[in-house]
Computed example of a mutant assay.
Amino acid sequence: MECLYNKNRIAVRFEYEYRNKEGKWFRAYGNENWEFDENGLMKKRYANINDLEIKEADRYL
C-alpha cells in the first residue's frame, strides 16, 4: 500500500486478495482519495476499485 498526504487529504493505492463463498480467489486493487474535516472526520471519499478473478497459484503469498 502506498500513501500520499497533504494537510486534510490523503491518497491511498491498495491491493489485496480474498476468496468468496464459492472458494474462488480475487485480487482487488485501486486508488482512494480521502478528505477530512476540521474534526478529523471523513468529509469526502473517492474510490476506484477493480476486482480480478485469479487462480490460487497466482496469489502473491
Rank of each mutant, 00 (worst) to 15 (best):
N6Y: 03
K7G: 08
R9M: 13
R9H: 05
I10T: 09
I10G: 15
I10P: 06
A11V: 15
V12I: 14
V12F: 03
R13I: 02
R13V: 09
R13E: 11
R13N: 12
F14W: 00
F14P: 00
F14I: 00
Y16G: 13
Y18Q: 13
R19S: 09
G23M: 04
W25M: 03
W25A: 14
W25V: 01
F26T: 10
F26G: 02
R27L: 12
R27I: 12
A28Q: 07
N31K: 08
N31W: 10
E32Y: 06
N33H: 08
N33C: 14
N33I: 11
N33V: 14
N33A: 09
N33D: 11
N33R: 07
W34M: 10
W34V: 06
W34F: 14
W34A: 08
F36R: 03
D37G: 07
D37K: 02
D37T: 02
D37S: 01
D37V: 00
E38M: 07
E38L: 10
E38N: 15
E38D: 13
N39M: 12
N39W: 07
N39D: 08
G40K: 02
L41F: 04
L41Q: 14
L41C: 05
R45L: 11
Y46T: 13
N48Q: 07
I49R: 13
I49G: 03
N50Y: 05
N50K: 11
